[in-house]
């Protein structure tokens, strides 16, 4: 599960370099996210634009990634493709995360 990360000030952008986050890679994704977010940026933007498919295990791994950030840090999501967005919408996880159509919009938005 390849992730690439870039931190500017208080914002860390993590890009998922995989076409799916599913049951086969959910545990690895969560673990890699824990390692990547260890640096402590207050705001993490997860760029999902390369991800064409997610299942409920992948969704759970993203939720777990947010929970393991801890108290005052936040995880925002950017670049959701229609199928990925549909899984968030049906499970109502779209009300838990801030979703941005693309990374530029996420970067332009204030963190609060």
């Amino acid at each position: 599960m390849a992730l690439s990360s870039n931190t500017t000030g208080e914002t860390q952008v993590i890009r998922v370099d995989a076409d799916r986050i599913d049951a086969a890679m959910a545990i690895q994704f969560k673990e890699n996210m824990r390692l990547e977010t260890d640096s402590g940026a207050r705001r993490v933007i997860l760029d999902l634009s390369a991800v064409e498919f997610i299942d409920s295990s992948g969704l759970g791994a993203i939720v777990a990634s947010m929970k393991q950030l801890g108290g005052d840090r936040r995880l925002d999501l950017a670049g959701l493709q229609p199928v990925v967005e549909k899984v968030f919408r049906l499970t109502r996880m779209d009300t838990v995360f801030r979703l941005f159509p693309n990374l530029d919009d996420a970067l332009a938005a204030q963190s609060e």
Binding site: S56, S57, L59, G60, A61, V63, M66, K67, T91
Partner: peptide, 15 residues
Amino acid sequence: SVETAREDLPEGGFG
């Protein structure tokens, strides 16, 4: 429910 504190959010059970 997803209307809960962050630490209580469900990570599964959606299948």
